[in-house]
Design a protein around this nucleic acid. Sequence first.
DNA 1: TTCACGGAAGACTCCGTTGA
DNA 2: TCAACGGAGTCTTCCGTGAA
Length: 291
Amino acid sequence: MPAYRENANHAWTEDSVRLILTPSPFSRESLYHAQEIGRFVALPGYFTERERLSSYLIVYTIAGGGKLVYGGETHSLGPGQIFLIDCMEYQYYAASDEGWEIAWAHVSGPALGGQYGFYATRGGPVRTLAAGSRIPALLEELLAYCETRCLRNELLASATISILLTELMLLNTEADRADTALPGFVAEAMRYIERHACERLTLDRLAGEFAMSKYPFAKAFKQYSGFSPGEYIINTRISRAKELLKYSEHTVVEIAGIVGIDNVSHFINLFRAREKQTPLAYRKTWKSPRA
DNA sequence: TTCACGGAAGACTCCGTTGA
DNA sequence: TCAACGGAGTCTTCCGTGAA
């Protein structure tokens, strides 16, 4: 694999802050952690260009302006805007002629890849924060925890990064809109699936129940629930099966039938794909005497 | 009870059409 | 011009069968 590459002009004021951190092995393996963090007043001419760095970068514009080149697109950055990027990909960011005051953090952690994927698939890297957003304060809080290194602060920093990432994920383009509250028909469809999960449910039948065409229905269902209708049906069935495996004496064959999957081999395949173990193994795990 | 495989069915995405 | 709808093609998942 090609090596990490960086090219930069470190033009920032003397009162800028930059902390390069060495987290404990425990923090590196088990917690979210900051690798570098700072608050810059970047001068005209400041830029960074890099790729293939195992890190995720959050940059919030406090004042002034800059630009970001990422994913083959160029983004202008102004006050109140933030970006999150995967530093494995090529990136170039620079201050404008008026300078660029930023709070930033390079972060990493075990679950960050998946969360970044969630963020990245719901819009480009750049988001505009609403007035009153917690994110600027969270970055300041994270910086404060990183200034004094101890186990307590590593734990608190991990918690802060977790909240920061959650806030970022909630900033996706859909979530910014006021209409993200679960529409009535989606909530009703979810209840309908839970009532009828053991029956034969198709997209046609579901859409028909709500007098909609199936594709707009499926699109809206996934947009607001996070699951396609099919995924939601299967998850509902698997949840019921887990309950029966734990609290009943029914055989796997019987449970498959009860939850609406007549073919037991198909039931086992579905179960294993989601739970990483077979139904019988799941039952043994939960019914084993505890030490 | 579990696993592997192949055909069938369903779901998703893209894009053209329609109507406001 | 833009948003919503729906058809077509492609891809994914489901389901049945047979063997261990």
